[in-house]
């Protein structure tokens, strides 16, 4: 079974919230902590429900998002 999740470069993120607004599964939110720029970056709080659609990557204006897929090795 495949598991999807996103990595957000917290220091690159400017906290615009566009990724949070387009996420169909609402698995993203603003972090409560500040990044080095003074923004609350986005974070994935609910990776289990991420479907790997890439919407967050698509709307991110700062290339802060990478979407990954973890799959079990064949035959295991």
């Amino acid at each position: 079974m495949a598991v999807n999740y996103v990595e957000i470069d917290a220091d690159r993120c400017k906290g615009c919230g566009l990724c949070i607004s387009v996420c169909p599964k609402k698995v993203l939110r603003f972090s409560s902590s500040f990044n080095s720029k003074g923004y609350h970056p986005a974070e994935q709080h609910d990776p289990d429900n991420c479907i790997g659609c890439g919407f967050c990557y698509l709307v991110c204006p700062d290339t802060s998002v990478t979407v990954l897929k973890e799959t079990s090795k064949a035959g295991t």
Binding site: R12, G17, Y39, L58, P61, T63, V65, L68, E70, T71
Partner: peptide, 25 residues
């Protein structure tokens, strides 16, 4: 387990952080 990157920034960008305001397209 193997990890596949499905969406990642393109190579033709230099990687330098953009100087634009938050949310600027």
């Amino acid at each position: 387990m193997s990890v596949l990157t499905t969406f990642k920034p393109p190579k033709a960008l230099s990687g330098k952080e953009f100087t634009y305001c938050p949310g600027c397209q």
